[in-house]
Simulated scan of single mutants.
Amino acid sequence: MTERTGQVDGQVDGVRRVDVSEAAAALLRDLTEEHGPLMFHQSGGCCDGSSPMCYPDGDFLTGPSDVHLGTLDIGAERPVDVWMSRSQFGYWKHTHLTIDVVPGRGAGFSVEAPRGVRFLIRSRLLTDAESDWLEEHEGAGT
């Protein structure tokens, strides 16, 4: 798994597990000004838990049951860490994820909720070369 190591902006030799759309990055910059440093967690539960939840950094405690997917460079002083429950990662480990934003009702505890928008994840399958590189360099913990 991509843990907090010597990576820069979650980049692993050009292969990233997670990115952010420009619209979501712009919103995250605004939310960072309002709430301070932020983080995402994707649990894979039902209802609100199936959406990426954005919290002030540290308001959601991560642990051994979570995987650090990388960090989003949003063009602000501090990038945004992205986490996923290890059980959900088991289903999504072969995908590249992009955090985007769309109009709609945000998840109850996610900081974008009062703005009439919500974060969502768009995904694509990793190429064979991306998967092979990540598997080789991230180790068996993935």
Rank of each mutant, 00 (worst) to 15 (best):
S131V: 01
H137E: 04
F109A: 13
S43C: 11
F40E: 04
S131N: 02
H137Y: 07
D66G: 00
G75N: 05
G106Q: 06
G104V: 01
C46H: 12
V18W: 06
L61T: 15
G36K: 07
V67I: 12
F119Q: 09
H41L: 12
V82D: 10
T2C: 01
T71M: 07
V101A: 15
H68P: 02
G49Q: 10
S87P: 05
D59F: 08
M1R: 13
W133M: 13
P37Y: 09
M53D: 05
H68R: 13
T71C: 03
V111G: 01
D57I: 06
A107L: 00
S110Q: 10
G36F: 13
A23Q: 14
R29Y: 11
D30I: 13
Q11S: 14
D73A: 10
K93G: 01
S85G: 08
G90I: 03
Q7G: 11
G44A: 03
V111K: 03
H41S: 12
R124C: 00
E112R: 09
E138H: 14
S87C: 02
P37T: 04
Q42V: 13
E138A: 12
E135L: 10
L125M: 09
A113K: 14
H41T: 15
L69H: 07
P56V: 08
M39Y: 06
A24F: 10
P56K: 08
M1W: 08
I99L: 12
L125D: 10
F119M: 04
A107V: 11
Q88R: 15
I99Y: 02
E112T: 04
D128Y: 04
S131R: 07
A25F: 08
L61N: 01
S50E: 00
M53E: 13
R124V: 01
G141P: 14
L126A: 05
T71H: 05
Q11M: 04
G75L: 03
A23K: 14
A129P: 03
V80C: 14
S123F: 03
P79K: 03
T142S: 14
H35W: 14
G106R: 11
A113Q: 15
S21R: 02
P64Q: 06
E34H: 09
G14N: 05
L28P: 12
G10M: 05
E3T: 13
L72H: 12
C54M: 02
G116E: 05
R78N: 11
P103Q: 09
L120W: 00
L97G: 08
G104T: 03
S50P: 00
L69V: 09
L28W: 11
L134T: 04
R105H: 06
E33P: 00
